[in-house]
Simulated scan of single mutants.
Amino acid sequence: MGEFLVTGPAGDAVGDLAGRVGVRIVSRLAEAGLTVRALVSDPSRTRLPPHVETARGDLAAPETLEPALRGVETVFLIWPDRGAAAPTPAVEVIAKHARRIVHLSGGRGPHREIERAIRWTGVPCTFLRPTGYAADTLRWAHQVRRGVVRQPYGTAARSPVHERDVAAVAVHVLTSAGHGGATYTISGPETLTRAEQARIIGETVGHEVRWEEPPARTAREELLAAWGDPAAVDDALAEWASFAGAPERVTDTVQRLLGRRALTFRQWAGEHAADFR
C-alpha cells in the first residue's frame, strides 16, 4: 500500500480524542511492519513509538507540508476541530502527492468543508465519521469521584464508540482495497443516555454516581467556566439537545468491516476505571 502519512497524532489529552486515535493508528501500522510517518507540529510533545518517523509541519501552513509528503501514497487526515486555517490550501498540497486520502471526519461543522475540499481534488477518498466517543466522559472524572455528575441533557441518547474501534476500522480501511468513495459512520453497539453512561461508570468504579441536571439558565455558564470555549460549549449544547429528541443511531460498521461486535461502553469504562478513581 506504499508509505502512509498520518497527520495530527497527539498525546492523551482529554480534548484531543482524534489525536489519540491517530496515535493508535500510527502504532498499529508500524507494528504491522508498514512504513508510516507522522506529521506533527512539535515532535517533542508527541507520544509515538520510537521507530516511527516524524515530520514537522502544520496544516495551517501548507508550505510546510511538502517535505512530509515526499514518497507518500496514502494520507490519513486528522484536521484540528478549531483554530486551523481554511482546509482547501492544505488539501490541495496533499492531493499533489497522495494517491488516496482517508479523513477522520465528523460529517458536520468544519468537517463538511474539509470533505468538499477533498472531493474537489478528485483523489480517491474515504470518510470515517465516528459517533460520540466514549472517552468524552473523561471530562466528568472529577465529578464522578464526588459521586454526582452535574451536566445538562441527561436524556441525550448517544451510541458511544470506543476509540480502539475507530482506530481498528481506520487501519482496516488504510490497508485494504475497495473503500474508495465510501463514508463509514462508526458507532458503539448500543444507545445509552448520558445519565446511563454516568451510572455505568459508577458501577465500574464501585460507587454510586448520580446525575444532576442543572437549571437550563446556568448550564451554559457552568460549562463555559469548565471548558473556556464558547463555540465548543454552544456546539455541545446543540448536539445534546438534538440527541435528547432523536437518539444517535447505531451502525453495523465495526461488525461489517472487522467481523466482530463493536466494543461496549461498559468495556470502555472498565479499561478506564483508574481515570475515574
Rank of each mutant, 00 (worst) to 15 (best):
G22Q: 04
L237T: 03
D229G: 09
L29C: 05
A170K: 10
A141F: 00
R150H: 14
D16E: 14
A170R: 12
E212V: 09
V254A: 05
R260K: 02
P124Y: 07
R45H: 12
E196T: 01
G107S: 05
S242W: 01
L48Y: 06
E203K: 01
A274M: 07
V36N: 08
L258G: 04
P230I: 02
R266C: 02
R108C: 10
G178S: 13
G107M: 10
P214T: 15
C125I: 04
A269D: 08
T88V: 02
A231P: 03
Q197M: 14
L34N: 12
R220T: 06
R82P: 03
R24D: 15
V40M: 06
A156E: 10
L29G: 02
R45E: 15
G228R: 04
W211F: 05
G178R: 10
H179T: 15
R82T: 04
P89R: 07
A134H: 05
T155R: 15
A216K: 06
T126H: 12
V144Q: 14
T253P: 06
A141T: 02
L223C: 04
R99C: 04
R139H: 13
S27P: 01
T204R: 06
T46P: 11
V161R: 06
L17S: 04
P62C: 12
P9E: 05
D165F: 08
C125K: 05
A18M: 08
L48F: 03
